[in-house]
Nucleic acid binder design. Structure first.
Lengths: 144, 144
DNA sequence: AATTATACTACTAAATCAGTAGACATTCAA
DNA sequence: TTGAATGTCTACTGATTTAGTAGTATAATT
């Protein structure tokens, strides 16, 4: 299950892409638009900030903007930072696998493959594609 | 992240497939072989039991066995029961989506698609395929 | 100096996780 | 018919995680 950390992080990055123009976007504005606690977003955006996908400016008219173009930012890189690498099991968070039983673990390939399909899917969704391809077809929403 | 509930459930079903022969396997034996608390496994196997993938026999020489052949049981059906439907976000647990904002939610297609790729992957892994040295294409993870 | 903003750390209530514990029900064998 | 072996079910609990809140410090602009 994706936590609010990851979900809010994605919404923030989309909000930045949609609103940054050629300036910086303040957390206050993001928090108001997205209706999420600004204090909570502070912590989440720090994670993104440390991973280098943002540029920041302090002080008056300061805020954040993406350091890359929205079509160069993938959902995978956002969620990997905020959701512990998106590993379905703990032993796949470290590489190499530190689990003493990993050599005999009959279920490991299941989890390893699951991680692969998840990452492969999310690496192919850019922020720009979310903004572009979003369609409303009744309740069946999907990316084309 | 897959919890111990789902992981232990999968290990129990594999253990059943490997040890049931033409009789029943007791939880005591599974717990000993898998080195997991029997009391905890009781609760987990109840979830599987209610979903109908097991047959049970009480009393002397009783225990559990699979109600289908191991090549007819998929990882998806085990994890759907034990991991809340494998929905990456809460609103995808109910169908139709009850979230008041789901019509305007720009991120919903991301999560919906993620659920699809996860389920599609897991629906194609049977218990038998795990036992038969299942390997994941395109990765270096495999059973030794 | 006042204002607008980010940066960082500490704290907390509520929920979830990973079990333990114990009472009860059923079946079979001796 | 009694006892051992098994499953069934509910309640409880310590530890951890989640989803925030709060406060202080720092930086840039007017």
């Amino acid at each position: 299950m994706i936590s609010t950390r990851g979900r809010y992080a994605l919404r923030m990055v989309i909000d930045l892409a949609q609103n940054q123009g050629d300036g910086y976007v303040s957390l206050k504005d993001i928090a108001e638009r997205q209706d999420i606690s600004k204090k909570y977003l502070e912590q989440i955006i720090m994670i993104l900030n440390k991973s280098g996908i943002l540029k920041t400016a302090r002080g008056y008219q300061g805020g954040y903007r993406l350091s890359k173009s929205p079509d160069q930012v993938t959902v995978a890189e956002i969620l990997k930072e905020t959701e512990n690498g998106l590993s379905p099991v703990a032993c796949l968070q470290q590489s190499p696998n530190e689990c003493p039983r990993c050599g005999e673990c009959i279920t490991l390939p299941v989890w390893s493959g699951l991680k692969d399909v998840m990452l492969n899917y999310l690496e192919n969704i850019t922020i720009q594609s979310i903004i572009d391809n979003y369609t409303v077809k009744g309740t069946d929403n999907y990316i084309i």
